Simulated assay, not measured.
Amino acid sequence: MSYLDASNMTGGYGRADILHGCTLTVERGQIAVIVGPNGAGKSTAMKAVFGMLPLRGGSVMLDGTDITAMSPQDRVKKGMGFVPQVNNVFPTMSVEENLEMGAFIRDDDFHDTMEQVYTLFPILKDKRHQNAGELSGGQRQQVAVGRALMTQPKLLMLDEPTAGVSPIVMDELFDRIIEVARTGISILMVEQNARQALEIADRGYVLVQGTNRYTDTGKALLADPEVRRTFLGG
């Protein structure tokens, strides 16, 4: 069984289902990327995996444990970290205070983890006493990812991590995501920059109307003429 096995997820908002039998799996240390057109259910699938959306069908397994009925808070304690697309930092708190907030579930000494975050994102150490709301978009994303890493997740979930940042910052964020995966942390990511995201993906999912249209390695999806024509602009 995969480290994350979210199988046949069906659910939505009110009476309307957004997801229709959507399945996502991620192995340990893998980068799995969800792409697809607007309204495909990508962010909804992430919320379902994280427990923010009740399922009407399907299940979510993490490391062999059924967590389908667990709250998001309990999923964090089980090893999930989630970085939403917007409102993902505390703007009036310093960078260091934001990272400390990420350690709220821990009762051990978290300063080694904080140093690891600063090693991954050196600019955050330079700006650790600055309020997060004063940072650039790319730097705020680094704070958000860093705060999630403070929980010592085994699965890190990122919803559009490069939204609104420059191509140079996007490449840097992707490089850091690869570094995180190399430590053995699994990554599940929704990304609007589909071509670039699939280039770093071990596994790719193309969602259309809440269901899996294509599932393969990132490299295979990039090479698929139909995927390229329909979803990657040729």
Rank of each mutant, 00 (worst) to 15 (best):
L158G: 10
G102N: 14
D107C: 02
K219S: 10
C22N: 02
K127Q: 11
K47Y: 09
P72Y: 05
A163P: 03
I105E: 07
P91C: 06
D66E: 04
E134T: 13
V180A: 04
Q73L: 12
T23Q: 00
G39K: 08
V76E: 07
L135N: 02
Q141R: 15
T65W: 01
M46S: 08
A223D: 14
M46L: 15
R56T: 12
Q196Y: 11
F110R: 03
H20A: 02
V190A: 13
R28C: 00
V180F: 07
M157A: 07
V76A: 14
M46A: 13
Y13I: 02
D17R: 01
D63Y: 00
V180K: 02
L53I: 11
Q30H: 14
G184I: 13
L207N: 11
S43C: 07
L120G: 06
E97L: 03
L198P: 13
A148P: 04
Q130R: 14
V33Q: 11
N98L: 11
L120M: 13
E160Y: 09
V95K: 04
V60P: 01
R15W: 07
T68S: 08
F82N: 05
G14M: 06
K47W: 02
E27W: 00
Y13S: 03
G210M: 03
I18P: 01
V169C: 02
V83G: 09
E96A: 15
T211V: 02
P72V: 10
G58F: 03
L207A: 13
N212K: 00
T162Q: 04
A16T: 14
T151H: 05
P84H: 10
M70R: 04
L222Y: 06
F104S: 15
E97R: 06
G218A: 07
F110E: 05
R213Y: 10
Q139G: 10
V33G: 10
Q116S: 07
Y214S: 00
A16G: 01
D109H: 05
K42N: 11
A220V: 01
V89D: 07
S166E: 12
D5W: 06
M189Q: 12
V60C: 04
L221F: 04
G184V: 10
R128T: 04
G233P: 00
D63V: 01
P54Q: 14
E100S: 15
L4E: 13
T68P: 01
A48M: 03
G210N: 05
